[in-house]
Design a protein around this nucleic acid. Sequence first.
DNA 1: GCGACGATTGGCT
DNA 2: GCCAATCGTCGCC
Length: 186
Amino acid sequence: MKISAINFLAPSHEVAHQLIGATFTVSGVGGIIVETEAYDQLDPASHTFVGKTKRNAAMFGAPGCAYVYRSYGIHWCLNFVCGAEGHGAGVLIRAIEPIVGLQTMIERRGVDKISLLCSGPGKLGQALAVVHDFNGMPLNKFPFELIPAQKPADVICGPRIGISKAMDLPWRFGLSGSPFLSRPFR
DNA sequence: GCGACGATTGGCT
DNA sequence: GCCAATCGTCGCC
């Protein structure tokens, strides 16, 4: 059965699962989403766990929009807001298989190994030129383009990476066997 | 107003 | 495998 659109109203872990295999580009640069992580407000590891603040406001906004935050003062990371509006849930895009605009991504990243272009939230942000201006912008409008997977992807899940809370939730999703993951699944 | 810390990365040991 | 880089945000004084 063909999926016509991502349902951003679904719980974050379902959206995170749906997004694996989807094609995502920013200004025509990007590829296939191969790794995501889900977060929601009841989740101690989520930015929204402490309630709405100036920083995380976009995640409490309309589903289907972007939430962009700075990590370690260095990297820009991209999330998709999901769940009902006001839920403070979202999906962190962790890795993409580079397909479109390879040369552009190589120049932005300063590396020429394809598997190192988008294999991590910060790298992906650099390769797709994610900026804080994208915060709160709808994903169905320029410069974004999101095309759902046309066939069911072989999705695996496991514990999330780089967090110190709620380590037990298996809310990291990935495309099975992909060489473009930030880290392999066990 | 100020100090602590992080959904990471990449370079060095 | 370990650790520094680097700065916006949050929470408290």
